[in-house]
């Protein structure tokens, strides 16, 4: 298995030395995110998130299926994460690396287990028919802080997604095409966001947000906190690494809440903008015979 080249000793020392003086290589403040950008695709449920040089694409899709036998009243919701060799030669197809397992576990805990999506609303006929919602996460470019970017992309994709409308009449289930009825959004309960702290130094006393790949390679520990804007923690994962004072972890959580609120309002704005862009007067406008070509003079 090819391995990513490690940074040289000089590079490592330089980064750490600079961090001692609270200076980051790209000149950011310690608690500052890189510029975040979100583009929605033409289809519903495609979100392309760039965070500095990290780029993640998430695509939500729905299909009709049979619910699990042990949960007849719930729909199915899955998040599939793929780190392809396109991102880094260290990732191989069909062999999940530790990073991949941890990223998918974190997304699962943050979005799925915290009940962000109401799975009961996905059930159409108890025990027989339900929607299966699947989000595929593709990492297109990896420059650190995959988790925050991936989580943002998943939430954005799911909130943007519209599933076909259905109706039940006299035991007959009808699924409408987008032309017949406008697709409906998922029943969404809350939007959790991941905020990842990186700790540096022997004592773990330097903490910063949104680490780049270089910073991730020299860090001595990390802690991912998932929160929504209501101040609910959905998940905390400090999986080992350098010991950090309990009090500073609490501080980290409070700052993470501010960041999560910030991310939340950013996403709301983007979604509103996109909705405005798409809303051209609904189906009527689309069906009108006029075209917007400017007639020749």
């Amino acid at each position: 298995m090819p391995r990513e080249a490690e940074p040289s000793l000089n590079e490592k020392n330089f980064v750490l030395q600079a961090l001692q003086d609270s200076v980051r290589l790209d000149g950011r403040e310690l608690e500052e995110y890189r510029p975040l950008a979100l583009t929605f695709g033409d289809q519903y449920g495609v979100a392309d998130v760039t965070l500095g040089k990290t780029r993640v694409l998430a695509k939500a899709s729905a299909e009709l299926t049979v619910p699990y036998a042990d949960r007849p009243l719930d729909g199915i919701f899955n998040i599939a994460t793929e780190l392809s060799p396109m991102t880094s030669p260290a990732f191989e197809v069909n062999r999940p690396t530790e990073t991949e397992v941890l990223v998918s576990r974190l997304l699962e805990k943050t979005v799925r287990r915290s009940g962000a999506l109401d799975t009961e609303s996905l059930c159409l006929v108890a025990g027989q028919k339900c929607w299966s919602i699947r989000v595929d996460v593709h990492v297109l470019s990896h420059d650190g802080n995959l988790i925050d970017a991936a989580c943002f992309a998943v939430v954005a994709a799911l909130r943007h997604f519209r599933k076909p409308d259905t109706s039940m009449e006299g035991g007959v289930l009808t699924v409408y095409t987008p032309a017949e009825r406008e697709p409906v959004p998922l029943s969404w309960l809350h939007s959790p966001f991941c905020v990842t702290w990186s700790f540096f130094g022997e004592e773990g006393d330097i903490a910063l947000l949104d680490a780049t790949w270089m910073e991730e390679q020299v860090r001595s520990g990390s802690c991912t906190i998932s929160l929504n804007k209501h101040g609910e923690i959905c998940q905390i994962a400090k999986l080992g690494g350098v010991p950090v004072e309990a009090v500073s972890l609490l501080q980290c959580t409070n700052i993470a809440l501010i960041k999560a609120k910030d991310l939340s309002s950013k996403l709301d704005n983007w979604l509103a903008e996109d909705a405005k862009r798409r809303d051209k007067g609904g189906l009527l406008a689309e069906l009108s015979a006029e075209n917007d070509r400017v007639p020749d003079m």
Binding site: G115, G231, K238, V242, V244, E245, L257
Partner: peptide, 23 residues
Amino acid sequence: SDKVVALVCESRVQISRLEGMLA
């Protein structure tokens, strides 16, 4: 010491509860 090596929370909880639980 009060130094936390690992902290894993897998359930939804109000942020105000965290301090008490951690202590």
